[in-house]
Computed example of a mutant assay.
Amino acid sequence: MAKFVVLYKTPKDKTAFDRYYAATHIPLAKKLPGLRKYDISDGGVHGPGGETGYHLVATLDFDSLSAIKAALASPEGQAAAGDLANFADGGVELLFFDTKEV
Rank of each mutant, 00 (worst) to 15 (best):
G53D: 13
I40K: 11
V6P: 01
V45T: 08
S41K: 01
A70F: 10
N86F: 04
L94M: 12
G43F: 03
T52M: 00
L95M: 12
F62K: 13
Y54E: 02
G47L: 00
A71H: 02
Y38P: 01
A67V: 07
T10W: 00
G77T: 07
L65T: 15
F87I: 03
F96E: 07
E76C: 10
Y21F: 12
K69I: 15
E93G: 05
Y21D: 11
L95V: 13
E51H: 06
K30M: 14
K3V: 03
F4V: 12
K3G: 01
A58R: 03
H46M: 09
S74R: 11
L35D: 10
D63Q: 06
T10H: 06
V45S: 02
K69N: 14
A67P: 06
A29C: 05
H55T: 07
S64N: 12
G43L: 05
A88M: 00
A29N: 00
F62G: 11
T15C: 02
I68M: 10
F87C: 02
K31W: 07
K9T: 05
K37P: 01
A79P: 03
D13C: 04
G90F: 00
D61R: 07
N86S: 12
D18F: 00
L94E: 04
A85T: 13
Q78A: 12
L60M: 14
P27T: 10
S41A: 09
L84C: 02
L28N: 04
G34R: 06
F87D: 06
P11D: 09
L32D: 02
A67H: 12
A29F: 09
A81E: 03
A81P: 00
H55E: 07
A73D: 14
A67E: 08
K37L: 11
H55P: 03
G49Y: 04
K12Q: 12
K3C: 05
G77E: 05
V5K: 05
A58I: 08
A71Y: 01
S64V: 05
T52S: 09
V6T: 06
